[in-house]
Measured scan of single mutants.
Amino acid sequence: TVKFKYKGEEKQVDISKIKKVWRVGKMISFTYDEGGGKTGRGAVSEKDAPKELLQ
């Protein structure tokens, strides 16, 4: 599970739902399947990112 803040809201998403991951400076950005055909997005700092996300 990845915990992150998006627009001031605390969120979390299961690693299995993450589609795409990329690095922006010291942040790790990602998109994930929100269900219902929607794609969500989020970002975590490199130090807070789970190891599975960095692979």
Rank of each mutant, 00 (worst) to 15 (best):
L54C: 07
F4L: 03
K7D: 08
G36M: 11
Q12N: 07
K38T: 10
E52G: 07
F30A: 00
F4D: 01
S29P: 02
Y6P: 02
G25A: 04
Y32D: 00
L54H: 05
S45A: 14
I15Q: 03
K7P: 01
K11P: 01
S29C: 15
I18N: 00
L54F: 06
P50T: 06
D48N: 13
G25S: 03
G35F: 05
V24N: 13
G37E: 04
M27D: 05
G37A: 04
G35Q: 05
I18K: 00
G37Y: 04
S45Q: 12
E46T: 12
D48H: 13
P50M: 03
W22L: 06
G8V: 02
Q55S: 12
V13I: 13
E52Q: 10
R23L: 08
K19W: 09
Y6N: 06
D33Y: 07
K5E: 08
K26N: 15
G36Q: 11
W22R: 07
S16C: 10
K3M: 07
V24M: 11
K5I: 15
V24F: 11
Y6T: 08
G35W: 05
G25D: 04
D14R: 07
M27H: 06
E34Q: 09
T1Y: 14
E34V: 09
E10M: 13
R23G: 03
D48K: 10
E10K: 06
T31I: 13
K17T: 10
R23D: 02
L54G: 03
K51G: 09
V2P: 01
A43Q: 15
R41P: 02
S45H: 15
F4K: 01
I28N: 00
G25W: 03
K51D: 11
G36K: 08
A43N: 12
G35P: 09
K20F: 11
P50S: 05
E46Q: 09
G40D: 03
K20N: 10
T31F: 10
P50D: 03
K47M: 11
Y32R: 00
G25P: 02
Q12R: 09
Y32Q: 00
K11L: 08
K47P: 05
D48S: 09
P50Y: 02
K51S: 12
T1V: 15
A43H: 12
T1Q: 11
K17P: 00
E46H: 09
R23K: 12
I18D: 00
D48Y: 13
Q55A: 13
I15Y: 05
G40E: 07
W22T: 08
Y32P: 00
E46V: 15
D48M: 10
I15P: 02
D14S: 11
T39R: 08
